[in-house]
Amino acid sequence: MGYSIREALAAFRRAPGLAALSAASIGFSLFVFGIFALAAYNVRLTLRQAEERVEIVAYLVDDLDAGQLEVLQNEVRAFPEVTEIRFVSKFEAMRNAVRDLPEFRDVFTDLDVNPLPASLEVRLRPEYRDPESVARVAERIALYPFVEEARYGQDWVEKLDRLRRIAGAVASILGTAFALVAVIIIGTTIRIAVFARRDEIAIMQLVGAADGLIRRPFLLEGLLTGLAGGLLALGLSFLAYLAVDRSLIHIAWLPRTWVAAQVAAGAVLGWLSSGAAVRRHLRAL
């Protein structure tokens, strides 16, 4: 192991320019990845906030007694899709209307009878906020005789769902593309490094060095280069985050696991692509 570490470090000393170039190219491809992650993460946050608003409102008939309400609440709460329900009485509905629509305050207060129905606001678990589940639960609630109507913003739910699907597809396509670019760049730079040391490799094979030992310094070199690239990418991504957050719109910084993943991705990409490059070289002999 001492040999591999020394050789890997010697490689940086012997060709610092090449090492810096490799780290920079890994850094920049992972930076693009990081920018993308930042965008994806913030879109996801926004979508999740929007999803919070997905709910079903069941408008109830006026002559509902307390026992029926009790039964309805208990049964709906027991639906597997449901996480939370809230009863809004006729009185509360009126108060909300007065609060939310001040320009109609006079109209509301002049009325003798309260025309607004009581309702049950039903919130679904996050995994059931897709259009099919929402529609299914709404239909089931509407079957109760003392439920006048069950509404949910159908358009809104469907749009949200489409947006979510598009974001997911774009994320996987672009993510894969950028990862591939990084692999190609690292593979190429390690191939240059292998080529620069081809004489040494040939001598090692000549005198009977094991393949693993020949490979290890390059793997380590790839790992360290990738790690440096990952850290560079992290720094650049953070600068980009600061720039956007300060001057354009407020956005969130990536969670710690994503940050760790970005740096680890650099190291792993470095390791894997140098492994592939060296293996190809050794095969060819």
Partner: peptide, 10 residues
């Protein structure tokens, strides 16, 4: 086997 070759070359 490929991994026996280094031993032989020594």
């Amino acid at each position: 086997r490929r991994r026996q070759i280094p031993e032989l070359r020594r």
